[in-house]
């Protein structure tokens, strides 16, 4: 009941953001090029162009065009991607989305599993050697030029090992096994499809190996973000009075930290995990390019180089929606973690 109100209010707050993003993409499509291009392909005869202009309302005044653009978006008409054999943007997004999400999820899991304990370790050993090492490790993550890191990883774990004739990680793509060619995608997530719908463990391992390098590369940045946040919020929480109270009860330091402090310290950390989703997608643009990962990021870069307006807009909108959704989820998790804002 109250929870519904809470969600509703968050949704309402998200509306202006979504509209703002839509407006901005519309605006950008005007200053970058001519939006008519979204509906024209090489086979379109020049004589047909005026008809297309009319059909899509480009002869109307600007504000009418704006509303047409918005209503098009709502109806699922996101234009045609000229750089991807003129297929509708929505179709391509659906096709490539799982690859990117699979990569981001793996990176995220990496980051959460490693980042939170490292942050706690760092906080509980503040200003000791272990803290210094952890901080350098974490800060190197946010300071790492991800494209360079990816190249170096690829060089060492793929080229060098391959040249030496040793077992090595795959250098790119999502899979090598030829069996994938006849693979029928169900969810689009290779890990899930291969394991649950095919029950083929070699396929699963193959997909996992392909994920390892790009996943770690992308995850390292997020590990760093989470570790830092965890460290500073943990430090803050450890100074709180309720920690003294917990200690005065005779609880062991472990219980004090993992039961009493952790839950409070998680509250700000969850926020950055939500926000980190945004940086993951940005990171995916570069990582996918280097590892030749058939996902949205690589598609977006290509689209930008070929001035494929519909694709750029589509990618931008999608990322914005993901971001808004992630924030919403964060708010809900907040409610679970912190009783003070539950139903707030």
């Amino acid at each position: 009941m109250k929870l519904r109100d809470f969600i509703l209010r968050r949704l309402i707050l998200a509306i202006p953001v979504v509209f703002g993003v839509m407006t901005m993409t519309w605006f950008l499509s005007y200053i970058i090029g001519n939006p008519v291009a979204m509906y024209i392909n090489t086979n379109t005869p020049a004589s047909a162009i005026p008809a297309i202009r009319r059909a899509h309302g480009f002869d109307e005044p600007l504000y009418v065009q704006y509303f047409l653009y918005l209503s098009g978006l709502f109806q699922g008409d996101w234009g045609i991607s000229t750089s991807t054999s003129f297929r509708p943007v929505t179709e391509i997004i659906l096709l490539k989305f799982p690859a990117t999400i699979e990569l981001s999820m793996i990176a995220m899991i990496f980051a959460i599993v490693l980042g939170i304990p490292l942050g706690i370790l760092s906080a509980t050993h503040k200003d000791q050697k272990i803290d210094h090492i952890m901080r350098i490790f974490a800060l190197a993550g946010v300071s790492m030029p991800i494209f360079w890191f990816a190249l170096m990883l690829k060089h060492v774990l793929y080229f060098q090992l391959a040249i030496a004739g040793l077992p090595h990680l795959p250098g790119g793509e999502r899979y090598t096994l030829i069996r994938y060619l006849s693979f029928k995608y169900t969810t689009g997530f290779l890990l899930i499809d291969s394991l649950f719908f095919y029950g083929d463990f070699t396929l699963f391992v193959d997909a996992l190996l392909h994920l390892a390098m790009p996943g770690f590369c992308l995850g390292y940045l997020t590990i760093a973000i989470i570790t830092r946040m965890m460290r500073s919020s943990m430090l803050e929480v450890l100074r709180e009075d309720y920690i003294t109270l917990a200690r005065s009860k005779g609880l062991t330091e472990r219980v004090v930290i993992y039961r009493h402090a952790l839950r409070n310290a998680m509250i700000p950390t969850v926020t950055v995990i939500g926000l980190a989703f945004g940086s993951l997608i940005t990171g995916a643009v570069l990582t996918e390019t280097i590892f030749n990962w058939p996902g949205l990021g690589k598609w977006a870069v290509r689209a930008i180089f070929s001035s494929d307006l519909a694709a750029i807009n589509g990618f931008t909108l999608l990322v914005a929606f993901i971001f808004v959704t992630a924030n919403l989820v964060v708010d809900l998790i907040y409610g679970v973690l912190d009783p003070r804002i539950r139903f707030g």
Partner: peptide, 17 residues
């Protein structure tokens, strides 16, 4: 609201645009 919109945009892509 304007800053919200900026945050929702992927920074790298916005720069490119």
């Amino acid at each position: 609201r304007v800053t919200d919109v900026f945050f929702a945009f992927p920074g790298l892509i916005l720069c490119m645009a």
